[in-house]
Every structure is written in C-alpha cells, then in structure tokens.
Simulated assay, not measured.
Amino acid sequence: MKPAGRTFIISGGCSGLGLATARDLHQAGAYVVLLDRNEDAGHAAIKELGEEKAKFLQADVTETSSIKAAIKSTVEWIQQTGAALGGVVAAAGIAFPGKVYNARTNSPVSMSSVDAVMTVNVRGTIDLVRLAVPHLINNTPFTADGERGVLILVASSAAFDGQPGQLAYSASKGAIVSMTLPLARDLARYGIRVVTIAPSLFESEMTRNLSAKARESLERVMEFPVRAGKPEEFSSLVMHSISNSMLNGTVLRLDGAMRMPSKM
C-alpha cells in the first residue's frame, strides 16, 4: 500500500518516534492526524508540517470518550480531503520503573504506577485500534490483493529481555507482542494488516530521562551500532511496513542485536 493520498492516525504523534513517523508519512504525501496530550507540542508540530495535510487533535488514549472524539474529527476531516484512512500508528506509551519489591522502603510496587503503564500502553492501544478498525473496513480496497489498511503497533525489546524494575513496562509491551498475531487473524478477512515494531534504546522523550549510569550500562551491551537508535530509523521501518504487504502478524525487533542486561 502506498501512503500517498491516505490518512494516518498517529498516537503520541507530537514527539519522538511518533513525530518522526509523521514527518516521513507527510513527506511521502500522506495526511497525518497527530494525537497527543501536549497541546504546545501539537501546535509546534503543525507549524512545522503545515495545516494542509497535518492535523493535531488533543487526545488522551486512556479515555474512550477522548479517542472517540478524535476518530470523529478525523472522519470529518477525511470527508473534506477525500484521503481515506490508511492506517494507525499506535506510538503513545509511558514507563514508570519500579521493582516488584523495594527493599529500601520495605514495600511492594505501587499498583497505581502499574495501572498507569498498562492503561496507556495496552488499553490505550487496543481502544484506539478497535475504534479505528470499522473505518478501515469500510474502505474500498487500495490494492489488487484487497488491502484496506494497516495497523502499526509499538512494543519494545523489554518485551523479550526486560530489566529489573521493568515489571509493568515489560508486561505491557509483552501484551502488545502477544496481541499482534490474533489481531492480524481477526482482520485478515478484511484486508487489514498488523505489524508490531519492538525497538531497543532509542532517542525519545521516554529515554531522555535515563540517568548517565543507566545509559552507560545499556551502551556496554550494544553490538552495532554502539548508540541509541534515531527516531528516523524507527520511522523508516514504519514506512516499509506500510508499503510491504507481506509484512503481517509479525513482530520486528529494531535493536542492532542489543540484548538488555540483567543488571545495571
């Protein structure tokens, strides 16, 4: 499927991996709808991309009503532009580090932090996808194979080799990995593909807060290249996943052969 002339919804679209994806899609001639809670970042992104083929919608993926409103606004915009919904990139995500037991405070991990991570990363992804899918199903097929759209999910290498303190984050990203195949099987009859990308350490809002000690620990186990991934390296894989129809029901590790260490 070619992205040009299609509309793509990107959650977490105003920073990091989401914004890099929006830039590449926009450059390829696609219309992009950026969902984000950060209004200032949203206005900055639209100022950069221009209003003709980019739209910012302030949305919170933890609230169904907020997603529904964003989908409604997207559909109304599509009716104006004539650019059918081509897919969703579910890039919104958070991480609250915390071991299951904290010896210093003699207390278990806070369930409020676990709930927050699971709500954004898992529930938010499923909710966005399920509300967008009916609009993809209604598309006239884009290709001779009958393709009607693509869903790009974002997991993490932590789904496979999570570190101490990544209990909730690894669980949430493991859920994204596990839902990939059944989601693809659910939607195969409609010509909708599902691809999950699992990046390792990438330059993003989330990793910017890492301590120097944590970053050095991760760099020691990098194979090649010995650096954090760049957002545009992530977005280039998104672009390939959109255009390559044989990518479906699969999880693509994007990690330069890096495996997370068990100790910092």
Rank of each mutant, 00 (worst) to 15 (best):
Q27A: 15
A116I: 10
V33D: 07
A70Y: 04
F96I: 12
A20T: 11
T62K: 06
A155D: 04
I71L: 08
F96T: 09
N138Q: 13
R215G: 14
V33Y: 06
G5S: 08
P3Q: 09
T250Q: 01
A188P: 08
L167Y: 08
S241L: 04
A158F: 00
S262G: 13
P97S: 10
L181S: 01
V109W: 11
E203W: 06
A184S: 07
D161N: 13
M179A: 02
H26F: 06
D115R: 13
D115G: 11
L85H: 00
W77A: 08
Y190T: 04
R193P: 05
V88L: 11
A257K: 14
S236H: 11
A175H: 00
A22M: 04
C14K: 04
T140S: 12
A132H: 07
A84F: 08
L210N: 07
R37G: 11
N139A: 08
A144M: 11
K72V: 08
V177A: 01
A22E: 00
E233Y: 06
D161Q: 13
E51Y: 12
A41V: 08
G98F: 04
D115N: 14
L131G: 09
I94Q: 05
I197M: 03
S172H: 04
L183A: 03
G256C: 00
L237V: 10
T140G: 10
N102V: 14
G87F: 03
T207M: 02
T196L: 05
N139R: 05
A4Y: 12
G86Y: 03
R215F: 15
K213H: 15
N138L: 12
Q79S: 15
V61A: 07
K68V: 15
F234P: 00
L181W: 06
T81P: 10
I126F: 05
N139E: 08
V194N: 01
A45Y: 00
L181Q: 01
N138E: 14
R148W: 05
R193Y: 05
E48D: 10
L25N: 00
G165T: 07
L252C: 10
D255F: 01
E223A: 15
E233R: 03
S211Y: 04
V61D: 03
F160N: 01
M264R: 11
G86P: 07
D186K: 00
I67L: 09
K173F: 03
D186R: 04
V221N: 07
V154F: 00
V194L: 03
I10S: 06
D161M: 12
S241N: 06
A214P: 04
S243D: 13
K55E: 11
G149V: 05
I197C: 01
G5W: 02
V122M: 04
L136Q: 02
G93S: 09
A103N: 14
S245Y: 10
L181D: 00
R253C: 02
S110M: 14
S113Y: 10
L128V: 07
N244L: 05
K213L: 14
V89F: 02
K68M: 15
K230C: 03
V177F: 05
A228C: 08
S157P: 09
V100P: 05
V177E: 01
S157Q: 09
S110H: 14
A90E: 01
T196Q: 03
K173V: 00
K72D: 12
A158W: 02
